[in-house]
């Protein structure tokens, strides 16, 4: 098997003990790949990455990262396990400045000033506003900051929950392209998206979940040409209808 970073085996998880949202999910994410999870509402896409992040308790099953068991970690210890998580909304601290947001996630690091300088070099839009409250940023810039905060701790895996939600098509394309670019630097991305069409063109591999179970998975390129997937998720039309 190729180099797999994240292994999730037979995951059962949910907020309430007797009410699992994930009933049985198996997912593998290759190192330095962009893996996409799609599926209808309530399929458990977000719940899955929250379970990996330790935000949602895992009732049974096992998650490993680079061979190390990370099932049920405390969410505040994600960085120690080399994971970062970008929540879907409210993913920056509005009342802190941009620099303070970054300093906050880097507060245990010895070289936080240098790291922030690197991040500002990468995201010049953030650098110019570094002492403004993060609440003043535009939607796209907020996602930039959220990704920068995730990137700050130098994780091997970044979990992204619908980063393009609520963004303009242009900003959405930018943030998804950013995710793609990160994989070329060796970062592994696990992405949940509603914006299937754009995301699928950038992804390496794609899982389809439904009702808390795996439904299908294949390379993104294969799925793009799959007529059934195209019909359901990519807005394609059934042959022979108007």
């Amino acid at each position: 098997m190729a180099d797999v970073l994240l292994h999730a085996t037979d995951i059962v998880a949910g907020y309430v003990k007797d009410l699992p949202i994930l009933k049985q999910v198996n997912i593998e994410v290759k190192r330095a790949s962009l893996t996409l999870i799609i599926g209808p509402n309530g399929a458990g896409k977000s719940t899955f990455i929250k379970a990996v992040a330790g935000v949602v308790p895992v009732t049974s099953g096992e998650i490993t990262l680079a061979g190390q068991r990370i099932t049920g970690i405390r969410p505040d210890q994600m960085a120690q396990h080399s994971i970062a998580y970008v929540p879907q909304s409210d993913n920056i601290f509005r009342s802190l400045t941009i620099r303070q947001n970054l300093e906050l996630v880097l507060r245990k690091s010895n070289s936080s000033a240098a790291r922030i300088a690197e991040l500002f070099a990468r995201f010049p839009a953030l650098a110019t506003k570094h002492s403004e409250k993060a609440g003043t940023l535009s939607g796209g810039q907020r996602q930039m900051l959220a990704v920068a905060m995730a990137l700050a701790v130098d994780p091997s895996l970044i979990l992204m929950d619908e980063p393009s939600a609520g963004l303009s098509p242009k900003a959405a394309q930018e943030v998804l392209q950013l995710a793609r670019d990160l994989t070329t630097e060796g970062v592994t991305i696990l992405l949940v998206e509603q914006n299937v069409n754009q995301a699928m063109h950038l992804a390496d591999h794609c899982y389809i979940l439904a009702e808390g179970r795996n439904q299908h998975d294949a390379d993104a390129a294969v799925l793009l040409n799959d007529p059934i997937v195209g019909e359901i998720y990519l807005g394609g039309r059934r042959v022979g209808t108007a």
């Binding site: 505040d76 929540p87 409210d90 601290f93 009342s95 802190l96 300093e103 906050l104 507060r107």
Partner: peptide, 24 residues
């Protein structure tokens, strides 16, 4: 200080603070 930021962060958004590495 980052300690102060952590306090403000938890007050603003406890769940985000937690996933940002702050022990609530």
């Amino acid at each position: 200080t980052t300690l102060g930021y952590a306090l403000r962060a938890v007050a603003e958004n406890p769940s985000l603070a937690e996933v940002s590495g702050i022990r609530l």
